[in-house]
Design a protein around this nucleic acid. Structure first.
Lengths: 239, 239
DNA sequence: TAGATTGTTAATCGATTAACAATC
DNA sequence: TAGATTGTTAATCGATTAACAATC
């Protein structure tokens, strides 16, 4: 299978795709604020990279700027959406409706990002409530629910002990993108044969306990070197 | 200021520190399972890196293995704890007790990791409950609470609009490690003068909305290349 | 001994940074 | 024009991988 390629024929790696997504986020906000132009250093500040990286990314994508006036917000948004795809709505399911899962079911920030939780799933009959605004179904209806809504992305907020079993069930249900809140390393190889594994998936891990541990270690080891980088500068507001 | 250095005088960068923390986590689990020895490829699988990286890390730290039998779990734990520090307990505060914040207040996984939430803080008087098992105080008592418990790490689960203001208050209260659930980029430069900034802090971002967006983009752009890497192999169980 | 794993060096790869010409 | 920013190339840097001798 080919790697994704940009308009110039260069390949886009994971890091670049994630940066493009972040540019796009910021650009939408800037547009909402009435910005027409933006400089590479402004965008870099917002996303946490250097101006050179921003320019190089855009250069790679054949997105041109103006040598004096920077880049046009509308052009950037248009081109980035052409590359990343302009999603109307991101539908997801939440598997495991404990404390974190329940909180995410109703997470109000999702709406702003165009993310919609279509359903929760749980193994506990007491948690099931199919008639709620965001319904919660028994876990064994996962495949049916996923198919009905065409969901390909799921949030995993089950106890660690259930993680692998749930992971497999989600793969079987056609889910290919996983936001994993468990401490278990989820990877396709762990549920299928080594060589003949045809099921590919994407996993993003959010290990809250580990992140907090890391904070303590980083503070202890590296208290002086962890400044986030570039000073804030201001972008060009609409005249 | 000097960078942290290992026993051989080499400097430890952020990526290495985070890997060491992950090794240590896995090693504690292995010890709990009765493992005495472990090979570089086993540890690599668990942490998601290649065996060569594991060996290189340990070599850098002057931790030796046995050319036939791998590394001794106890030795690794001892040496890693000597380097990272053996923390008895990680005390944190949760600032902002909305859906996510409340869920984290009672997050049961924390106990297993030695993380203790000493208090929550909120601006809403209705949320305040100083007599609860995990008390919730008014936000303006933050400095007092942080000082009383000697807390240096905080979880930020406030609305985006309040993020910067809360960030500044937390810095003023002596908090230096931040687990940031808001979509706002928190960095010390945003709250102090550029050059004379003496307040250093560490921020780990958990942007759930962005992570989900990324899943959709990665699935669309790179459906075939996101396999998590190395196949599982088994470690050496105690005889 | 034979086999397997460590430990280290060199080679490779990719990403970041520096520099600066082009030009609006 | 003068100043500022883009766009690109080359240089640098660091991390990863390959390879293999050492040796248990």
């Amino acid at each position: 299978m080919e790697e994704p390629r940009d308009p110039k024929g260069n390949s886009l790696n994971r890091a670049t795709i994630l940066r493009l997504a972040r540019y796009l986020r910021v650009l939408h906000k800037l547009k909402g604020l009435g910005f027409v132009k933006v400089f590479s250093n402004n965008l870099g500040d917002s996303v946490g990279v250097t101006p050179a990286v921003v320019r190089k990314d855009f250069s790679l994508l054949a997105i041109g700027g103006n040598k004096r006036g920077g880049y046009t917000v509308d052009v950037l948004i248009e081109r980035l959406e052409a590359i990343l795809g302009k999603e109307e709505s991101h539908d997801v399911v939440v598997v495991g409706c404990g404390r974190i899962g329940s909180a995410l079911l109703e997470y109000s920030e999702f709406t702003r990002d165009g993310i919609r939780v279509v359903a929760g799933l749980d193994a506990d009959p007491d948690k099931v409530s199919p008639d709620a605004r965001i319904p919660i179904y028994p876990i064994d209806q996962l495949a049916e629910v996923a198919e009905r809504h065409g969901v390909t992305v799921g949030i995993v907020t089950v106890p660690d002990a259930a993680a692998l079993q749930v992971f497999r069930a989600m793969l079987d249900a056609g889910i290919r993108g996983f936001l994993n809140f468990t401490a278990v390393e989820l990877k396709c190889q762990s549920v299928c044969d080594f060589d003949s594994c045809a099921t590919r998936c994407v996993v993003q891990n959010v290990n809250i306990g580990l992140e907090i541990e890391n904070l303590f270690y980083l503070l202890k080891m590296n208290p002086k070197s962890e400044l986030a980088g570039t000073p804030e500068t201001s972008a060009v507001p609409r005249a």
